[in-house]
Design a protein around this nucleic acid. Sequence first.
DNA 1: TTGTATGCGTTATCAG
DNA 2: CTGATAACGCATACAA
Lengths: 362, 362
Amino acid sequence: MSKTRGGGATRKPTIATVAAKAGVAVSTVSRYLNGHYVSKSVRERLSDVIETLGYSRSWTARNLSLGRRGSIGVAVDWSHDPWFVQLLTGIEEELASHSTGLMLCSLELRGKYDQGIVLQWIRERRIDGLILAKPQRRERALARACLDAQLPVVTIAPDEILKHVHVVRCDNIAAGTTVANHLADLGHTRIAFAGGPEHSVDSRHRLHGLRAGLLARGITLSDSSVFSCDSWDVTAGGVFAEQFLAAPLGVTALVLANDALAFGFMRVAHQRGVRMPDDLSVVGFDGLPQGSLFYPALTTVRQPMREMGRVACRTLFERDNEGGVVERAEFPMELVVRESTGAVRPPPPRRDLRLVPAVEAG
Amino acid sequence: MSKTRGGGATRKPTIATVAAKAGVAVSTVSRYLNGHYVSKSVRERLSDVIETLGYSRSWTARNLSLGRRGSIGVAVDWSHDPWFVQLLTGIEEELASHSTGLMLCSLELRGKYDQGIVLQWIRERRIDGLILAKPQRRERALARACLDAQLPVVTIAPDEILKHVHVVRCDNIAAGTTVANHLADLGHTRIAFAGGPEHSVDSRHRLHGLRAGLLARGITLSDSSVFSCDSWDVTAGGVFAEQFLAAPLGVTALVLANDALAFGFMRVAHQRGVRMPDDLSVVGFDGLPQGSLFYPALTTVRQPMREMGRVACRTLFERDNEGGVVERAEFPMELVVRESTGAVRPPPPRRDLRLVPAVEAG
DNA sequence: TTGTATGCGTTATCAG
DNA sequence: CTGATAACGCATACAA
């Protein structure tokens, strides 16, 4: 069969090989490849030649010619954050269909915060765009750097206001209300809320929705039962649990601003002998899969992370060069009822006042 | 100033810009950039020019010229597998320092197994090498495709024998022995083992090490207390728990072949009222971080995933074109004692024979 | 040690 | 509708 040379290793056929074999110019092949106009006869011939040659084009060369880099950047605090992992799945999926690469950067990978790597990517034009997952105020510098470099940026679930960038987020207010209704349906009236960091807009939105939803059901969420944690992680949830359990408020349900906090809380609570949901119903936000592994499995409100990842990616490609217009996508969150919430017990539990241990029936 | 054009947006300086401004040839700049020989005077001049110009080279062009693609492929069953996530951190870290991109592929992403995407990457020469995480027999096709295409492959923790590829793995036999000693130290003598799928070499190695280690301490692990699960995931662990608990063996410790199985097991066991470690000590393998979130936190043997990821990456780059030699790296696993294992109770517990419920002291 | 010329595989421009 | 040809930005024999 007519390989390019008789000799050594068969070289990968190029667009020129195809052109020669089909008896047309390279530019014609290029046009064919990109779906531009070519006559039907030529089109069929090329289709054949490409098939038999097993030709496929060089993305490197194409990128060079088009002035692209062929991969996008994705920055997040910790790439092993379970929330991000779900997101990554969506990104991966979308990227594969664009046959584009990915450069991953955990801003806090080596113990201390450092956005140097990403700044370098931007400066050196290593990426065609940047996805910022859960950006906070400190990530503004990255967004600005991209904007200055004419690179598109899309933020996912930003926890601060970043201007002039596309954003993909969830409706956290509605999510809060969803939780409110769930709890109200179960008969809870004395409820507490543990937020994330003070400045977090997600946390505020969730609280806002919760409070409003509760109010609509005639339930008041007093300020004295609203707390906030220093960070969003499991550890903070544990720390909160210590103080929360030390001074009982007599609430029957606790809403934590995200699943990680809830995980930390539940572990400590469990150790302290709190029975969930009997003694206390617990709710989180995010919908991390591992919430279903605990005892009890955590009731939560799920973000469609995978879909969000896909949309973020798509936005990056679509809005590649269309400056100006800022795209916004907002997804609804979905209640996932598992085991950590239950109906409030008929006579409101006041176990703290009992002087003798109750005898369990059966 | 000698900009390429007077007009619009300042174009990114190229190697030619630098050459012109420094009064040398582009090839000289190229040599400088690649650390080849240039006179000291020229070197200093170039250093200056590059600095003031803010020049940085185009990796796309460089890749084209060198015949590289600029990113590697990473394939795994599920990219959200917690084990893989840890690995990815290491890969990410190493990749950043090579400023190389990444193409991620979950073989089972869309519900059914499909290696088509990766095969396409290989066929189209989209990647410079492939990392296969936890490959099994079915991944042989991928390895072969790479080999045929002259692409380097490194497998991480292969659970089957794949020939002619680099491998980064852990010493699972030693890990099994580590567990054996830990349990023996705690006084356990009646122990059970729940393996992964039958054909799994990891599972067999872990069992082998466990059995040998136990024997060295005078403890026999009888065949009747060795089980195997259909898969490696949480669900399988739960299924196993159902049958394991239905027919009590009277063992005081259970070793599961990985953490995921242990998670599934513990959840069901907890629901069935098994107190761990009082009634049963439980041990897993892998050392997933989330094991510390459970009640009790899971005792396990940790793989240095991050380091493994780094080494795998490095191997890919180093062994880029050196055909023939197969690199092997084996890491030790490290015992992580948490809460799910405890000393066996002084009088061997035979609760199943008790006719009256014991009264708990205090 | 440095410069010249050519190749890498595509795309885009502009005549035909 | 199709064909030359010039970018794209860098690397590297080869010559000087």
